[in-house]
Design a protein around this nucleic acid. Structure first.
Lengths: 156, 156
DNA sequence: GGATAAGGATTGACGTGTCAATCCTGTAAC
DNA sequence: GTTACAGGATTGACACGTCAATCCTTATCC
């Protein structure tokens, strides 16, 4: 790639597509978040934590594993777990295996909230995303997402 | 559409595509935001405000027009303008035409920051988005974005 | 002319995320 | 044994966004 190309800027049309893309995705995300909130009183951050815990052995994960799994920074997770613990959704306790570690466990209330939110949320994803697109278009989304991930050096 | 279809949930594959899509977009957004920040000390919210003002007559807009233009709620704009004004990027003054209105004007510092950030930001969009895709793929992005917008009842 | 509404914007409280600094506890070095 | 340090997690300060409540100024109504 030439130096000139590396420093190019988008055409008007490319910029239009970019802005439409990023704004539409953001709107979609916000709508889904709002529905999840009203259906289960969970934010998407809560949901992500509970989803990971629900798939874990004994609904428990070490804090560092959890952070790794969902791709959060430690400090973000720590703040969020404090808030979730205050609401009774999770419980934290020192990990018996690892002296430094903390075990995060989903409480009964957390499990119940997740159960209550999960199916409606999946229905919302189906309604607002899957049903908006043809099978063909969905395959194109997958292709272009993969291309972006490669370009950003994220694992596929 | 049948009641059954309305209440369907995504298949495993559809869910994989959805999660990849939403996470990749979020990562891309975060990378661009980080670059903009380091290149010009502007957040993407700052950038959006300054972009709108830069295109306005005399770099000035009424607060309510600005909110309408960029699709923000009044209160969000008010909070953000307060922070931007504290940093010297914009200036607020009562609007002579409209008794209730407030004129928001980009300051020289705001204009300079925007000028400094704008081209590098467009280059970043080109590098991280446009260059990741073929022309064909870009056209498909436009198509499916439009489909999503229609489905969400947003104007195209 | 005093109550009332209505438009335009601000405020406060709160949940959230980031960054840098800190804390805590065991382990290695000397 | 004290000092250093390393892993794991927490904290504090701050920027951001949302929601509901409020403020302020003019217009209207009686």
């Amino acid at each position: 790639m030439t130096e000139t190309a590396r420093r190019a800027i988008p055409t008007r049309e490319e910029l239009r597509i970019w802005r439409n893309y990023i704004e539409t995705t953001e709107t979609l995300r916000a709508v889904l978040e709002g529905r999840l909130q009203s259906e289960s009183s969970l934010s998407s951050a809560d949901y992500r934590v509970l989803l990971a815990l629900s798939e874990a052995d004994r609904s428990t994960l070490r804090s560092s594993e959890l952070a790794e799994l969902i791709g959060w920074q430690r400090s973000r997770l720590s703040h969020h777990l404090r808030r979730m613990e205050k609401r009774g959704l999770v419980h934290r306790a020192p990990c018996p295996d690892d002296v430094h570690g903390i075990d995060v466990r989903m409480t009964a209330l957390g499990a119940e909230s997740f159960r209550r939110g999960s199916v409606p949320h999946l229905r919302d994803v189906h309604e607002l995303f899957v049903e908006a697109l043809t099978a063909e278009q969905l395959a194109r989304v997958d292709e272009f997402t993969t291309a972006l991930r490669r370009h950003l050096h994220l694992e596929p």
